[in-house]
Every structure is written in C-alpha cells, then in structure tokens.
C-alpha cells in the first residue's frame, strides 16, 4: 500500500510541472482554470475558510488573525489590509509597511479545523467513557457507538501497543491512543470535501512534525541504559568506534531518522491522496474546452476514479493512523528492551 502511494506521489510530482506549465500558459485567457492555485489552494493553509464560489463571488468564513508585531494585533481575516498587513506570494501575512513577517499565531483554516476536530475527538472519547460510568461493564458490553469505539480502542491496545511496546505498555497507551485517534479522525475529516472537513491537517508538515517530536520524546526520554549503550557504545569491533566514532554517529543519526520518517510518511501519504483526488476532479474542468462529448466521457471516468480514490483514501486514513501508532510503539518498545541476547550469551558460557 505504502509503495503504491509513493509511486502515485512520484507520478503526481512528475506530472505536476506539466499541468502547472500548461495551466500557467493558458491562465492568461479569461475563464481558464489556474491548476496550480486550484490544487495548492486546497491543500495549503489559509487565513479564511473558503466554502464555495458562486458567479465569481467567493463565500468564505473569516477566521481570526493573531499577530505579535510591536504588540498583539487581533483582527478578522477579511480586514487584513485595514490593519496594515498584506499577504506575500506564499500567502503568509507580512507587515505592509516593513515587508517583514511578524510572529503569526493566527487561527488559520488548519488551526480552526484542529480545534473543531479536537473538540469532536474529546466528545467522542468522553461519551464512550461516560457509557462505562453509567453502565455496569461487568454485566454488559457497549453497543452502538460506544461498542465501535471499544472495538477500535481494544484493537489498538492489543494489536498495536501491547505488541510494540511490550511490558508496562499501559504507561504509553494514553499517548499512543490519542495519536491514533487524532490522526485517524483528522485523516477522515480531510477526505470530507466540505465544511467542517476538507482541511489538509494531517497532510500539513507542522502537524506531523509535532506528532513525530512527541514520539521522539517518548522514545528518548524513557529509553533505558541498554538503549543508550547501544547508541553510544554499540557492540561492534573497536575500530568502528575508537578513533572515529563511526557507529555512534550512525546510531545518533538513526535516533532522528526514525521520527523523521514518521513525519514524512504521514505528511506525504495524506498530501498525495489529496493531490490525486484534486487532480481527478480537475480533469472534469480541464476537459471542458474539448467539447461536450469528450468532457462528458471524461467526467464519467473522473467520477468513477474519484469514488475509487475516495475509498482508497478511507483505507489510507486508517492505515496511516495504524502505521504511525505501530511504528511509534515499536520505537518505544526498542528503547525499553532488556538486553536479552547478552543474558543468553552469559548462560551459554
């Protein structure tokens, strides 16, 4: 699955310059679609939540901008110009007078989506927890939504966390469960094409970076002596570590590449899925000028392929949450492993 996604991403990246240049070439004509801004408008962050466009009139929800630039400034995104700010070519807020970027903690589209999905997540989990308060769990199992949540939680705990972390897995279960449900819920919301879904949250590098850092901390803050010995004084021939600490260097790089791969994997998979979906939908508009026959047939193909992609994305939403949690568990488990092979060596001697 992951390999397929990577291939698709590569394909999309290869085709991107072609479509972009073609779009850029024709963007001068009025009524043409600018593919680059169309796709990137959907997958990148924004200061407002664009709902739809009717007759060239944009309908969007203005979101609060919060900037710290010689003092705290708070204003709605439809009053950016009134407050002496403007957007640069990357779509970020800059001071109109100085052209510098202020400290920008605006509630952007992604931040707003983050707030909504987090509230939803807390409500979902607490509702499930409330079921257990109100019922005697010794006598009955939950049905309906609480039953579904219980099944998911039990699956994550037993199949992922317990397998990966090993003993005292209960200490890490809350973080890993939170990460799983956070990623899963936001992946699902990312597929929903209209408000309040559609924000590309888990396909945003800041979000995956934060999650990867959390895992990095969980792995390295609670790593045992054996784990650190393996990094700084691994069991390899002495020349690999004495004059030049070759192996320790590689191990230290490994410490960082593990969470880095977590970050890039989630980000790239979700982003690629969104780009593919947008590309499939864009086919309908790109073929509009080729005549009704071709446009109609391409529309049918695009819709069928779009449905297929959507189902695939549902699968990916789950798989990526699963993979992130599983790898985090495995990394945590590795950092807490007792040196078993040494004990075995001692006993065989």
């Amino acid at each position: 699955m992951h390999r397929i996604k990577t291939l698709l991403l590569l394909l999309a990246l290869l085709l991107a310059p072609l479509t972009a240049s073609a779009a850029g070439h024709e963007a001068s004509k009025p009524g043409e679609i600018d593919m680059e801004s169309y796709i990137f408008g959907h997958i990148s962050d924004a200061y407002e939540w664009h709902i739809t466009t009717i007759n060239g009139h944009h309908i969007s929800i203005p979101l609060p901008c919060i900037v710290i630039d010689d003092g705290l400034h708070v204003f709605l995104s439809n009053h950016i110009e009134d407050n002496g700010y403007t957007l640069n070519e990357e779509g970020k807020l800059i001071n109109a007078a100085t052209g510098r970027r202020p400290i920008d903690i605006s509630i952007t589209k992604n931040a707003f989506s983050l707030i909504l999905s987090s509230i939803l997540l807390v409500v979902l989990v607490l509702c499930t927890a409330r079921w257990y308060k109100r019922h005697d769990a010794m006598k009955e199992a939950p049905r309906g939504f609480a039953g579904l949540m219980e099944m998911l939680i039990t699956m994550v705990v037993n199949d992922i966390i317990k397998e990966g972390v090993g003993k005292d897995y209960e200490k890490y279960a809350p973080y890993l469960l939170t990460a799983f449900f956070f990623i899963f819920l936001n992946n699902l919301l990312g597929i929903v094409p209209f408000f309040p879904g559609g924000a590309n949250l888990t396909g945003n590098i800041a979000v995956t970076l934060f999650l990867a850092v959390c895992t990095f901390l969980a792995v390295n803050l609670f790593g045992n002596k054996h784990y650190y010995k393996d990094i700084f004084w691994p069991e390899v021939p002495a020349w690999l570590k004495v004059p030049l600490p070759l192996m320790p260097l590689i191990e230290i790089i490994g410490m960082f590449t593990k969470p880095f791969s977590l970050m890039v994997r989630l980000f790239a998979n979700i982003l690629a899925g969104h780009i593919m979906l947008l590309g499939v939908v864009a086919v309908i508009f790109l073929t509009a000028e080729l005549g009704p026959a071709l446009n109609g047939s391409m529309t049918v193909i695009a819709v069928i392929f779009g449905v297929f992609m959507d189902i695939l994305e549902l699968l990916v939403a789950f798989i990526q949450a699963y993979v992130f949690t599983m790898l985090s568990s495995v990394f945590i488990g590795l950092s807490r492993q007792e040196p078993e092979h040494e004990k075995q060596l001692e006993t065989t001697k």
Binding site: I66, I105, A111, L114, I205, A206, F210
Partner: peptide, 16 residues
C-alpha cells in the same frame, strides 16, 4: 508545503 508553520505548530502543541 514542507516548511512547518510556526503558528500552526503553536496551536498544535497547545491543542494536542
């Protein structure tokens, strides 16, 4: 796309 945004990182840290 591949530059983490400080604002979102801030909110992510807080909310998560």
């Amino acid at each position: 796309l591949i530059t983490p945004d400080f604002g979102l990182l801030f909110w992510m840290t807080l909310i998560f």
